[in-house]
Design a protein around this nucleic acid. Structure first.
Length: 563
DNA sequence: GCCGTTTTCGGCCCGACTGTTTTCAGTCG
């Protein structure tokens, strides 16, 4: 996802906000929002598409007008339509709309009546109690505004999957204490295993008269109960995570699960298919006219359209519906099919043994082990490691592969004694510095590194850290294709704060025929569990058994990438 | 502003919850 796309999306959203304040045609506003989402979620940058003379009108929600506006932004960095609106209505007002509880109407009133333009203005006015008394604002609203602007900075935070699980697990334990609960599941992007999660969507069915909402809002980690009704409640936890809970009848459970799992664009596509067949699909069920014809199970939603079940990880409206209709959905890999982990780090015989032992418990047949070495390494050291691995492997009944990891220099050469490289079972390379090189130089650097015949694995391919560093800028497709040609594996760094490759990059790897190796990068036995986040990502990237080296048995593995 | 196997006009998701209201508008997902 390029910064440019994010900027285009932001401009469209801002325009939509201001038009909303001006009370413009709501469908026109939505068109801008849809366009913003399409652009933001597109894997390629709009600038690239324009260079390649692709027709932007092919993108969903982009027509003649938006295509021209995108082109204008890419070429000039400006959106004249936005500037025109900003001449009438200050652009910063759109920041106010991000505060929960403030929508276009309230923001407009605050601006017109009190000339409030910024969050700072708003706080001052609230403290001075100038807001109460405005039509539609009472003392309570004013207090709420003050409270919510205080927390404004934390509200936007997204959590990685590990953080989300650590918040979710104790909450689920709390909910399960409730007598009368039948079904309890987390839907939303968490269920789709998206790499970051903004909130948790709990879906619940229960026996009649079960005090679900009372129990839920009694959870001790709650910082604020945002709303509480009979079928829906929203809370914000101390951690900053927002949690929505929805109570649905059992006859709607499947439909609701589908609806609240999303993604939104996937749901819209499904709903549209329903409309064509004169069927209504919503969170309550599937209907022909007024008659409910399904809703208990999620599978039935897809069955309605003669489609096979689409796994949550695939529901991003990236071709999964067409694939399902044509019966060519990928067969996603489950945890049982995983026989090994390509990369963990040991420091000595003892840590090797601890990692290997855990790997055996996880029913792995093989494990790639890399030794952290200080400074250069020598033949003697390698022999020591090899011995430790062989002994431990035999004792525990697991094949341990000796991985040598070397850095890629800025010129693409491998920083290591070339003769020693052949002593390893497998040589992995990684970019440790010079991540800022420009597109061309970085591409050349990686291609050159892969030319080295010893190199069999490229780890942490983009170097990204989720939410902190977007990753190196280079021609990923070209590098992946070259890796495929050279029979060099591409690592999927499974650490939950990295997940490097992205889901889209996994698809790209599959497209060019590169073999992906999920790597936990564990330094402790517990961290071997990171692998499952990598597997989630691989599933989101449509990878199948044959695309992943982790599904292969020992024996096959050593001969797989001969030196 | 977008879209089209009812195609160039006339649709576009809508129900739950809140707060202030006295019958409902605004916001959210």
């Amino acid at each position: 996802m390029s910064a440019d796309n994010a900027r285009i999306g932001e401009m469209f959203d801002r325009l939509a906000d201001l038009l909303e304040i001006e009370d413009a045609n709501p469908f026109r506003i939505r068109a801008y929002r849809n366009g913003a989402q399409t652009v933001r979620e597109h894997p390629r940058s709009m600038a690239d598409l324009i260079i390649e003379e692709k027709d932007l009108k092919e993108l969903p929600g982009i027509g003649k007008d938006l295509a021209e506006k995108i082109r204008a932004i890419v070429e000039t960095g400006r959106l004249p339509a936005l500037e025109e609106v900003e001449a009438r209505t200050p652009g910063v007002l759109s920041d106010l709309m991000k505060i929960p509880g403030l929508g276009p109407k309230k923001v407009k009133a605050l601006y017109k009546e009190l000339n409030i333009r910024s969050v700072a203005d708003l706080r001052t006015a609230a403290r001075e109690q100038r807001i109460r008394g405005l039509p539609g604002f009472a003392a309570r609203t004013e207090e709420q505004i003050l409270r919510r602007t205080e927390k404004f900075s934390v509200e936007e935070r997204r959590f990685n999957l590990l953080e989300a699980e650590q918040i979710k697990n104790p909450l689920m334990e709390w909910m399960e204490k409730l007598d009368g609960l039948s079904q309890l599941i987390v839907a939303g992007s968490f269920r789709r295993r998206k790499e970051t999660v903004g909130d948790l969507d709990l879906l619940v069915t229960a026996r009649r008269n079960t005090p679900v909402m009372e129990h839920f809002t009694g959870y001790e980690e709650i910082a604020e109960v945002v709303s509480r009704g009979t079928t829906r409640s929203t809370v914000r936890l101390v951690s900053g995570m927002q949690v929505d809970l929805r109570l649905v009848p059992k006859t709607s459970y499947g439909a609701a699960l589908h609806y609240f799992t999303g993604s939104k664009t996937h749901n819209i596509a499904i709903r549209k298919m329903g409309v064509k067949r004169k069927l209504k699909v919503n969170e309550y069920g599937m209907f022909r006219g007024d008659k409910q014809i399904g809703g208990r199970t999620e599978r039935a939603v897809y069955g309605l359209f003669d489609m096979p079940y689409i796994e949550p990880e695939l529901r991003e409206f990236r071709g999964e519906i067409e694939a399902a209709l044509e019966n060519r959905l990928p067969r996603l890999v489950g945890p049982k099919a995983i026989h090994g982990d390509m990369l963990c780090y040991a420091t000595d015989a003892r840590s090797t043994s601890a990692l290997a032992k855990r790997a055996v418990e996880r029913e792995y047949e093989w494990l790639g082990v890399c030794f952290d070495s200080e400074g250069g390494l020598d033949r003697k050291q390698i022999i020591t490691w090899r011995r430790a691995l062989d002994r431990t492997g035999q004792r525990l009944g697991i094949e341990l592969l000796l991985i040598g990891e070397a850095a890629i220099a800025k010129d693409g050469s491998i920083v290591a004694d070339q003769e020693l490289l052949s002593e390893f079972d497998l040589v992995a390379v990684v970019v440790r510095d010079g991540m800022h090189l420009d597109h061309g130089a970085q591409t050349r650097r990686l291609l050159r590194a892969l030319e080295n015949p010893h190199v069999k694995l490229l780890t942490s391919p983009t170097g990204r850290v989720i939410g902190r560093y977007p990753g190196m800028d280079y021609d990923l497709k070209r590098v992946l294709a070259f890796a495929a040609e050279r029979e060099c594996m591409v690592g999927l760094d499974a650490r939950p704060d990295r997940l490097d490759l992205s889901d889209e990059a996994c698809r790209l790897a599959k497209e060019v025929g590169a073999t992906v190796a999920i790597c936990s990068h564990a330094r402790t036995p517990d961290e071997l569990d990171n692998l499952r986040f990598g597997l989630d990502q691989a599933r989101r990237g449509w990878l199948e058994r044959g695309d992943l080296v982790n599904t292969r048995n020992s024996g096959v593995i050593r001969g797989q990438f001969p030196d």
